[in-house]
């Protein structure tokens, strides 16, 4: 059963420069939410951004990982950078 740390590391190593925060939504190790911030998302549609994250896990999504909820943003659009404006 994958852990949140494992998912986070896999996203961050597969998408260069990405920062991921992964949450186990049910505590059961199969419903996760990932918030991913990456430069690489710039210029991509939301669909394309989410597909990049899903691609990290391939066939596991829908199987070992029953559900993976995704939120993506680029560093500029990340709400946490609001203060620097």
């Amino acid at each position: 059963m994958p852990s949140t740390e494992e998912l986070q590391q896999r996203i961050e190593s597969a998408i260069p420069g990405a920062r991921a925060e992964v949450e186990d939504l049910t505590g059961g190790g199969d419903h996760f939410r990932a918030e991913v911030v990456a430069e690489q998302f710039a210029g991509l549609s939301r669909i394309e951004q989410h597909k990049l994250v899903y691609a990290v896990f391939g066939q596991e999504v829908g199987h070992e990982i029953h559900a993976l909820s995704i939120a993506t943003s680029t560093p500029d659009l990340n709400p946490t950078s609001e203060a620097t404006r």
């Binding site: 939301r46 669909i47 899903y54 829908g62 993976l68």
Partner: peptide, 21 residues
């Protein structure tokens, strides 16, 4: 669709996304 989860919404033939989007 190339999208691994359900639900999936299509509008005018184009994949819009799943529940999160």
């Amino acid at each position: 669709s190339g999208w691994p989860t359900t639900p999936q919404l299509f509008v005018k033939g184009e994949l819009i996304g799943g529940c999160d989007i």
